[in-house]
């Protein structure tokens, strides 16, 4: 007797839950003005991407053209597909020691899969996600970017 009751209760619950789902989609259907997607080429001027959006890897610079990259090369090691290339330079410190710094941080956007491992691996938070996403170019070599700006230097308080 109990199993028969369960059988019909099952049908009742199924119908109820299916109708709940259909109510949601039905309401969406009858309110076509509610659009959650971005109407991209039209709203290009006003489009604001979200903080979590992974457009490209960038190296933020402050007002004095200073970045946080020490040139340690951990991001280069962390990258699974060889997107990042670190070219180091050596400078003479005032105390006579030699010190490694970053010369060029080369980022091959064309090879990047946007996994974000370089950003997670960076010990000094030098890398971040940029919001730019219109990367289409006519020449592949334009996708090879140098992330540190010319003439930039490291922020003084970074501890290696």
């Amino acid at each position: 007797m109990n199993s028969i009751f369960e059988y019909f209760a099952d049908i009742f619950h199924t119908v109820k839950s299916l109708l709940t789902g259909m109510k949601v989609t039905g309401r969406y259907f009858f309110s076509p003005w509610e659009i959650v997607t971005q109407q991209y080429p039209e709203n290009r001027k006003t489009l604001k991407m979200y903080d979590r959006f992974k457009g490209e890897v960038i190296m933020p610079h402050n007002d004095h053209n200073e970045h946080r990259c020490t040139g340690c090369g951990i991001c280069e090691t962390a990258c699974p597909n060889g997107t990042i290339e670190i070219i180091q330079a050596k400078i003479d410190m005032p105390d006579g020691k030699k010190k490694r710094i970053i010369d060029r941080h080369i980022y091959h956007l064309g090879m990047c899969t946007f996994c974000g491992l370089c950003i997670k691996a960076c010990p000094s938070d030098a890398l971040a996600w940029g919001q730019e996403f219109e990367h289409a170019v006519f020449d592949r070599s334009k996708l090879n970017k140098t992330l540190n700006q010319p003439g930039s230097s490291i922020i003084k308080d970074i501890v290696e």
């Binding site: 989609t25 039905g26 969406y28 259907f29 076509p32 509610e34 659009i35 959650v36 997607t37 109407q39």
Partner: peptide, 10 residues
């Protein structure tokens, strides 16, 4: 179109 409207798309 129906699919789009049911998913709040255009």
């Amino acid at each position: 179109k129906v699919c789009a409207f049911m998913q709040n798309r255009v």
